[in-house]
Design a protein around this nucleic acid. Structure first.
Length: 276
DNA sequence: ATGGTAGTGGAACTA
């Protein structure tokens, strides 16, 4: 069994205790992080090694963005990927291999992705941040379509900043013109999904009509009572891994841990496919 | 249509 977890930490330096607790409670083999908000030389390398993740692929910048992959197993072919002619640290990939002892049959490529939030106005003409978000989603789709095949075992996880289904937000009608849930973004996310025939693991196991949220704004005093959440964080796999999906969990309780990120982790367990 | 909070870095920006 291989456990992979994704979490937008909103500053890794504020979430070291939370990551230690997650390492203990989930036995994750691999953790993909987004919004580490730290440049490389200030990344808490030693702290992450101490909690069980000596292998680290990091891409950082001061103050904003920042992605990483932490692993109990060696990481190969680390790639810091840039889109839209920017140097933003939003996409990093690495491969784990069975010959290193990882509990997998074949090498798996793992991607940690942080899609731009897109600003408040859902109009690419009026809002350059929203235009960037749409272009970024297309660029990632082109990157996958051009450089990989859907037969490659791959896990793509991270903060995609889009809640595609009606049950991925607290009120579909109220949010249909709100950035993260507009039709134009959802269409761009669907194009990305089709680039490698990705499978949305959470919706593979949880009925499409069941509300699932991974993010609650900091600005609600009692986030749980109000429960105005959205499913912005996702785990997708390519078709070869579909039969290996052994479980998925949104760790909602982590939103209570102090001090909290506004996002919660999502956990995927991959096992051997059932014998036929 | 506004404001509510968190984080970085030490003001203004991003989310």
């Amino acid at each position: 069994m291989l456990s992979l977890l994704t979490w937008n930490v909103n500053s890794i330096r504020k979430r070291i205790d939370g990551l230690a607790r997650l390492a203990e409670t989930t036995n994750a083999d691999v953790i993909c992080l987004q919004e580490t908000k730290v440049d490389g030389h200030l990344f808490p390398t030693d702290a992450m090694t101490e909690i069980g993740f000596p292998y680290q692929a990091i891409a950082g910048q001061p103050g904003y963005n920042g992605v990483a992959i932490l692993s109990r197993w060696p990481l190969h072919d680390i790639a810091r990927i840039h889109h839209c002619e920017r140097q933003d640290a939003r996409h990093i990939a690495a491969t784990i291999r069975p010959e290193d002892g990882a509990p997998i049959d074949e090498a798996i490529q793992i991607h940690s992705l942080y899609v731009p939030a897109g600003g408040p106005i859902p109009d690419p003409e009026a809002n350059p941040k929203f235009a960037h978000k749409l272009k970024f989603l297309d660029a990632v789709a082109d990157h996958f379509a051009g450089g990989y095949g859907y037969r490659d075992p791959m896990v793509l996880m991270g903060d995609f900043n889009v809640a595609p289904l009606p049950a991925d937000v607290w009120d579909h009608l109220k949010l249909s013109k709100i950035v993260t849930h507009t039709p134009i973004e959802i269409a761009a996310l669907e194009r990305l999904k089709r680039s490698l025939a990705f499978i949305d693991v959470v919706r593979e196991l949880i009925p499409a009509d069941d509300p699932v949220f991974t993010w609650w704004s900091y600005r609600a005093a009692d986030w749980q009572a109000v429960n105005k959440g959205r499913r912005l964080d996702h785990i997708w796999v390519t078709p070869p891994l579909k039969a290996h999906i052994a479980g998925v969990e949104v760790l909602v309780d982590v939103r209570h841990w102090q001090p909290p990120s506004d996002h919660v982790p999502v956990l995927l367990k991959l096992g051997k496919p059932p014998a036929i």
